[in-house]
Structures are given as structure tokens and as C-alpha cells.
């Protein structure tokens, strides 16, 4: 149901585009609008759900703690029988309808595109920033590229995924907590310096 021109969740927040210490290896925080669809298998239909998502989106639903990528779509494990599918922002409405039809009787399909907000935290110091906000071990030996987890970041529940070894983390948080989380990230990044990209502005690669 996403309208094409989504407003930034931080439209009125008073944060500037950059701040903190000027050290040259500032972290980047980017608001990344996305289509987010929560799928939860009906009782005993997990295999059917996995087969259907593989067919529809070429996505192999991942095991706990993992994520899967196919083209510009990805899937994250949320809970037993439940996954979050992330797709580009602009085709949300159509994708929700398509999945709802394809998964009829197999899974509950719920649009969360507006319910959750994706913040991408990247830069050499991204792990150091998260260590201030999160009690999960994010060392590459414990949390490799593609790993995902739902945990507390800045005291709120976030679903986190390591996108690449920049490192870049996607933090998926309840939309009503997005400003809070952004402010927590900015505070934690203050010693390194930070820059902020809002939705609607140029997207990071």
C-alpha cells in the first residue's frame, strides 16, 4: 500500500546532515525506505511457504539467525514460522497483493512497510557504535555477513542484519521508535562523527 513518495520519518527532526567529531572515518546513518512484508506460516505449512516464496521471489527462507538474498529482495528470520521479506520501496502495494494471493491458505501476509523503519548504519566504526547500544556479540567471528538477529538496540527491539563488511548494518525498528533510535545512534556515533541521509535524498549504493 506504499505511496511512491514516502515522507521521511524524520522530516521534522532537528538533526543536521552531519555532526560529532570530525575524524575522517565518520559513520553514515541512512534512512532506507523499503517494502517490508511479514509472512507467518499457517500450522504445519512451513514447507509449503518455503516452496512458494522460492517460486515467487526465488528466496530460500533462512534458518534462525540468518538471512537470504535474491536479486533486490531479502528475507530475515523473525520467529518460528515467521519471516520478514524486504523489497525495494516502490513496488510495495503490488508485492503485498501478489504474495497474499500466492500464499493464500499457506501463510498470513501482513504489510509492515510503514510499521517498521530501516536504518542503515555503515562505516569502519559501525561496530563500535553498536557496542554502545547493544549487548550482542557483533565480532565477525560471531556475526558474519548475512547474519541477522532481533535484539535490543538502544533499549528497543530491532531486527539487525549485517549487509556487508564495510561494515554496514540494517536496523529494522518499529516506526514509532525510529526517531528515538536515530537519536541514540547519533549520540553513540558522536565521538567518531556521523552523517545522516534521510529518505527522499540520494540513496546510498
Amino acid at each position: 500500500m506504499s505511496a511512491p513518495e514516502r515522507r521521511s520519518r524524520f522530516g521534522g527532526a532537528s538533526l543536521p546532515a552531519r555532526g560529532g567529531a570530525a575524524q575522517g572515518d565518520a559513520v553514515t546513518i541512512a534512512e532506507c525506505p523499503a517494502t517490508l512484508i511479514q509472512v507467518t506460516a499457517r500450522k504445519g505449512r512451513q514447507d509449503a511457504l518455503a516452496a512458494a516464496t522460492l517460486k515467487e521471489l526465488a528466496l530460500a527462507l533462512p534458518a534462525p539467525g540468518a538471512s537470504a538474498l535474491a536479486g533486490d529482495c531479502s528475507a530475515l528470520w523473525l520467529q518460528p514460522g515467521g519471516w520478514l521479506i524486504q523489497a525495494p520501496a516502490n513496488d510495495g502495494n503490488a508485492l503485498v497483493r501478489r504474495l497474499a494471493a500466492a500464499l493464500d491458505g499457506i501463510a498470513a501476509v501482513v504489510d509492515q512497510s510503514h510499521g517498521r523503519c530501516v536504518l542503515r548504519l555503515s562505516g569502519q566504526q559501525a561496530r563500535a557504535v553498536l557496542a554502545k547500544l547493544c549487548r550482542l556479540d557483533l565480532h565477525p567471528r560471531s556475526f558474519a555477513v548475512g547474519a541477522s538477529a532481533t535484539t535490543l538496540v538502544g533499549h528497543v527491539a530491532c531486527t539487525m542484519r549485517l549487509v556487508d563488511e564495510t561494515p554496514a548494518f540494517d536496523l529494522i525498528v518499529g516506526a514509532s521508535y525510529a526517531t528515538w533510535l536515530l537519536e541514540e545512534l547519533v549520540e553513540a556515533a558522536d565521538a567518531f562523527g556521523w552523517q545522516l541521509t534521510r529518505a527522499g535524498a540520494a540513496q546510498p549504493a
Binding site: 498470513a108 501482513v110 510503514h114 510499521g115 517498521r116 518499529g174
Partner: peptide
């Protein structure tokens, strides 16, 4: 656990 129900919070979606 035998009931076939799926639910999720959509508080922030709307």
C-alpha cells in the same frame, strides 16, 4: 498450540 492462528503487531503500520 493446536489452534491455527497467526498474529502480529501492526500498531506502527497504521
Amino acid at each position: 498450540p493446536d489452534l491455527d492462528v497467526q498474529f502480529s503487531s501492526v500498531t506502527d503500520q497504521w
